[in-house]
Amino acid sequence: MYDTTTARRGYGISTNTLFARTMTFVAATAGLFALGAYIGRNLAHGAGIIAFIGAFVCLIAMRFTATRSQQATVALLGAFGLLMGLATAPTIVYYATADPRALWQAGGATALFIAALGSAGYATSRDLSGLARVCFWALLALLVFGVVAIFVRIPHSSLIYSVLGLVIFAGFTLFDFQRLRRSQNLASAPLLAASIFLDILNVFLFFLNIFGGRRD
């Protein structure tokens, strides 16, 4: 049983308070992501890669500021969302031009996916840390598969990549929402928000690839 009224490290918060704050951060990050995608709608792919690297740097920096400055961590989370929007803008523009319907289908599927898996992860009492480790190594293997598929023609490799990615991030979503219920440290909200936002973004991109009907 987890005490939801007395927290570790001197934080006296309820699970609902942490949930509300974390999901507020997720929504704000998503809003900045949308702003970045709009600003970067004419961005070249090279600039998008630079923005992605910048977002990755922000994500790493959050690990160091989380225990030192809440304000700095929140600012880095906002910068992360904005930069990810800039980095993803060329992909979104591609699909918006080729098949706008795929964007709405991917968005709807993502909402249902996250709602279902997030609810299951939040409700389960089974420890999912082992699942998270499996998903981490599976993600590395998937990245290797993606690199190999660039140089070696594999039938339906794009679809296989996306379906496997959805399976992996189903596991991450379950784990991250369980962490959201189990954590009793209000300062962890920005890091939890970053993890959940990444789950949502990756699921959206995988669905976008599926509904966009790309051919190998």
Rank of each mutant, 00 (worst) to 15 (best):
L43A: 12
A47C: 07
A47H: 08
G48E: 10
G48A: 07
G48P: 02
I49K: 11
I50R: 04
I50L: 13
A51I: 13
A51H: 04
G54T: 06
A55K: 05
A55S: 15
A55G: 15
V57P: 00
C58G: 05
L59I: 07
I60W: 10
I60V: 14
I60C: 10
A61E: 11
A61P: 00
T65A: 08
T65V: 10
A66W: 03
T67P: 00
T67M: 08
R68D: 09
R68S: 14
R68C: 06
S69E: 09
S69M: 05
Q71T: 13
A72G: 04
A75H: 00
L76H: 03
L77A: 07
L77H: 00
G78L: 12
A79E: 04
A79Y: 04
F80V: 07
G81F: 02
G81C: 07
L82K: 02
L83A: 10
L86N: 06
L86R: 04
A87I: 08
A87M: 06
T88K: 01
T88W: 03
I92L: 15
Y94H: 15
Y94C: 04
Y94K: 07
Y95T: 04
Y95R: 00
A96M: 15
A96V: 06
R101F: 09
R101A: 15
A102V: 03
L103C: 05
L103R: 01
Q105C: 05
Q105K: 06
G107M: 10
T110Q: 04
A111V: 15
F113R: 01
I114A: 10
I114E: 03
I114P: 01
A116F: 14
L117S: 05
L117D: 04
S119A: 15
S119C: 05
Y122M: 07
S125M: 10
D127H: 05
S129G: 08
L131T: 09
R133G: 14
V134T: 13
V134W: 13
F136S: 08
W137K: 05
A138W: 06
L139R: 05
A141H: 05
L142P: 03
L142H: 08
L143G: 14
V144M: 12
